[in-house]
Write a protein that binds this DNA or RNA. Structure first.
Lengths: 215, 215
DNA sequence: TGCCATTGTGGCAGATACTGTCATATTGAC
DNA sequence: GTCAATATGACAGTATCTGCCACAATGGCA
């Protein structure tokens, strides 16, 4: 295994260039396979009728491993919504502590829709697929709300620190976050709903409408 | 049918006056006992550390019976929030289909806070106890949001029918409901929060502040 | 008052979700 | 090439929740 080993090493380090090492890339791949399996099974049958064991088998991993990637079968179908956490984290530094509360928070949550403005993009197609499924599955909607709730608590803490004494009252901050979150969710829902019925739907326009209405 | 039969009939109907018969009253009593047991155990330990078996034992019923009353241990602590459904149902007829959407929906959801405006009332004390517990227990918060989500779907259907063609667009209706719901939840939370820290707190004033802020 | 349909309850078995732990294999750094 | 870190799988165990059945309590009706 002399030359073979060296070869393997070189390959490994080259791969670190984009994916942080083979290990991490393999992890992302497994994660994606679980998600694909879950979405397919959910679409074929239903969320309730699909077991974790089935998803794990379809993805080629053990049930135990499934739970190392996702906390529940619902979460397996919604990794898209975890990207939201990244979007929020990335946008936090841009929040102006002196700015108007509602405006700043809407600006922050508006980042969530950015990646999906082009209906034809793969990201948008994926999001549409999930949102469509969500419209039929109450348990998925509940899971999204659950994720949203957890995110809310973190965002509130982060924003409270950032706004400091300007908004020491938690009431308005919490409300601003919940409203911004509702605007985003309603926009995605309406977007998927309209495309489902064949209507043309522009996510940017829908989001703007929702935003205006919320004020 | 003799006089005896008539007498029994009358007695039965008299009981229906407050409790709809002994059966229903007994049911309410059992329900309350389960809730009390759950709240006590949750407060003593934590929601996660408390099992359904323990709650059932403390309430003097079998675990099987527990699940005939509540779908989960979290729900057992939150029957208060099911009163919301009754409040909404009662208020639906008063919604003006010609009125402004946001205004009407806020009017409807505002009914939820009505029973708790007097801080000293037993209902308010009970609500405070639950809300305080909720602030420490993420799983209870999640359960409340879950109940809220289910209620939302029903309310949306009812209001869509009531508003008819005036608001054929689901986006604004959904958003109005979600915002009104968030206003109520944030108000209760701030109310409990301020009383917890010893501050004076007027639920009516807080709700008004939240309402103004949301516009 | 007595009969009967309805309804509440408990016990049991079982499916499913999830977690801790250990042994094993793979990866990656030196 | 060796060793530490990490990923996986298998296993056992706990908790949630449901269907089913037998039994008891209730309430309508003759």
């Amino acid at each position: 295994m002399g030359a073979g080993t060296a070869e393997r090493r070189a390959k490994t380090e080259a791969e670190q260039g984009h994916g942080q090492g083979l290990r991490e890339r393999r992890r992302q791949q497994t994660r994606a396979e679980i998600t694909d399996a879950a979405l397919e099974l959910f679409a074929k049958g239903s969320v309730a009728a699909t077991t974790v064991d089935e998803i794990a088998a379809a993805a080629g991993v053990s049930p135990r491993t499934f739970f190392r990637y996702f906390a529940s079968k619902e979460d397996a179908a919604l990794p898209v919504h975890q990207d939201f956490n990244a979007a929020i984290a990335a946008g936090l530094p841009s929040v102006d502590p002196q700015g108007e509360l509602r405006r700043e928070v809407h600006g922050l949550y508006g980042l969530m829709v950015q990646p999906y403005l082009d209906n034809a993009s793969p990201a948008a197609q994926r999001m549409l697929q999930v949102t469509r499924l969500m419209r039929k599955e109450p348990s998925l909607r509940a899971a999204v709300v659950h994720q949203s709730l957890e995110r809310t608590e973190e965002v509130q803490a982060a924003l409270a620190a950032r706004f400091g004494a300007v908004h020491e009252d938690a009431l308005e901050l919490r409300l601003a976050i919940d409203i911004a979150s509702a605007v985003v969710r309603a926009s995605f829902d309406a977007w998927a709903s309209r495309l489902e019925t064949g209507e043309p739907a522009d996510l940017a326009a829908i989001y703007q409408q929702a935003l205006d209405f919320s004020k």
